[in-house]
Nucleic acid binder design. Structure first.
Lengths: 206, 206
DNA sequence: TAGATTGTTAATCGATTAACAATC
DNA sequence: TAGATTGTTAATCGATTAACAATC
């Protein structure tokens, strides 16, 4: 299958979580307008996304939830699940580790890195924190493919190169310092301040 | 001025941070292609955004950085600066408070809320944590206009209503539970898992 | 001047939504 | 059947980019 549109991929991730939630409530089938309500989008958009991944429902019962969840899994996940490293064990790094811990996804955080001796050689929600010097070693050994940067912004650029040189394929950057694209690396920026200032702008009395 | 496009507002927030950074290095003027390089976007996009906010540069020197920063401030900020409440003092709430603490923005986090007695009546990076029961009271007293939800997802919906009823104008939702729009409230969703799964999809070997 | 840059319109691209035939 | 739903194309909307005149 060709690469799916950016926005469709984002929604697939959200569909899956909502659908898993429905499954756990004992529901087996669901209509497009029900999914739409869960995510506060339109039913057409749901149907179009589902069309794009090549799944079909039935007119009477809608979509089989389990089948849809499995298919989304096949699209987003790899068979073994991808492994993740968190670089920078400040509040944000810790928050992320605990956050993901609770969710149903095949992605696993398998290592954390820092340079602060107080953080090294401890575990946080079962994730062991190594000295940054050992990043390349651990990335190779574990087969880590994704890196999350939660360091202070000044260090972000160096961490990008470190992760790239270690062979990581994708980076999620949580620092407010925008990073430039590198050959062969998928880069996603995630900037909390921008989101907040956006709210501030649209909320501002005028 | 009419409301600016969503994406332009996001970039203005980023321009401002980069420009402040340049100012602190002693730079006074900047060309559109220089701004573009800092943010890894195109010069045309920079010029178009600047056109939309009604600022002009000069052909020889480009844009006056201080003037541009001030104008962006006038657009995004209110004169007094908006006040923010963080609801939920887990790792993520703490991370956010420390994160914003370090940046140059007029937005100020003035209160945190939780229901865990161990967290209540303590300060985190100068932010005092109150019992959730006092939310409406404090929001009124302080004139808080923006709420950030960093609770477990199950509580997100209730927190939305609580914040709305207390008179908050905008909500930034960090939980993976999508919230439905409410009359008169600006709602921004910020979902870390979706970002991560998006990276996973585009990184996946195929 | 020649070259570089801004400001702005028009064209393009991508994503969402409307419309509707087909089906149960 | 009548009504509800899916699947899909075409139209629309919004955001980005190309093109270029004007200017220093």
């Amino acid at each position: 299958m060709n690469l799916l549109p950016d926005k469709t991929v984002e929604r697939l991730s959200q569909y899956r979580r909502s659908l898993n939630n429905q499954l756990s409530k004992g529901k087996t089938h669901i209509f497009s307008h029900e999914i739409a309500n869960l995510l506060h989008i339109t039913p057409v958009q749901v149907r179009r996304d589902i069309m794009l991944i090549g799944y079909s429902g039935t007119l009477r019962k809608g979509y089989n939830i389990q089948e849809l969840v499995d298919l989304i899994g096949k699209i987003i996940d790899t068979d073994e699940g991808q492994k993740i490293a968190v670089v920078g064990m400040g509040n944000l790094g810790k928050a992320f580790i605990h956050y993901l811990d609770e969710r149903g996804t095949k992605l696993r955080i398998v290592a954390a890195f820092d340079i602060n001796p107080e953080k090294i050689d401890k575990t946080y929600a079962d994730v062991y924190c190594f000295h940054l010097d050992r990043l390349a070693e651990i990335v190779h050994k574990e087969g880590i493919t994704i890196g999350i940067i939660t360091t202070p912004p000044e260090a972000a650029r160096d961490m990008k190169f470190l992760l790239r040189d270690a062979g990581v394929k994708g980076i999620l950057n949580f620092t407010p310092k925008p990073l430039s694209e590198e050959e062969g690396i998928y880069l996603e920026e995630y900037d909390m301040i921008t989101s907040l200032e956006k709210v501030a702008y649209f909320v501002k009395p005028r």
